[in-house]
């Protein structure tokens, strides 16, 4: 597969840059107050109503254990085929075409699929499937 043909949505979290394939994001919306889920782990912030569907808000910073989401951030609603989930992130930087410069070092965190160099920094690409799996495993307990 040609990595360079795909677009990335780049967002920030606690000063770090992260990326997701554009195809995996349904829409970016402003935060609204989620309804808390009783007994859920603290990285589940609650559920909101997005166009009549219930979407669970995942506080990505809490899941990655690097703080918590900024109240003024954004919700990245994921494609329903992946999960009924929206990621609460600090801000959305924009879209970049993923260039061929794939990071070769395998990231230490299994929730990061790979790292891509862009300009002066790196973008950490999330491993969405593993994130959803981990959340699911935690919820089952």
């Amino acid at each position: 597969m040609k990595a360079s043909s795909r677009g990335l949505l780049v967002f920030t979290l606690q000063g770090e840059r992260y990326g997701l394939s554009l195809q995996d994001v349904l829409e970016v919306i402003d935060p609204s107050r989620p309804v808390p889920v009783p007994r859920a782990p603290e990285f589940i912030r609650g559920v909101i109503n997005v166009h009549g569907s219930l979407v669970t808000i995942l506080d990505l910073a809490r899941l990655l254990a690097c703080g918590e989401a900024a109240p003024a951030g954004k919700f990245l609603v994921l494609d329903r085929r992946i999960a009924n989930l929206a990621l609460w992130v600090d801000s959305v930087e924009g879209f970049v075409a993923e260039e061929g410069e794939l990071g070769t070092d395998s990231p230490a965190d299994e929730l990061i699929a790979r790292e891509v160099r862009s300009g002066t920094g790196t973008i950490r690409i999330l491993a969405l499937d593993r994130i959803v799996n981990r959340v699911e495993e935690t919820l089952k307990r």
Binding site: V37, L54, A83, L85
Partner: peptide, 19 residues
Amino acid sequence: VKPLGRPLASMKGLGGGAV
């Protein structure tokens, strides 16, 4: 009744949601 979908549906004790 609306389904909670993945992953929240895995939580015991919740049978769905509604608006």
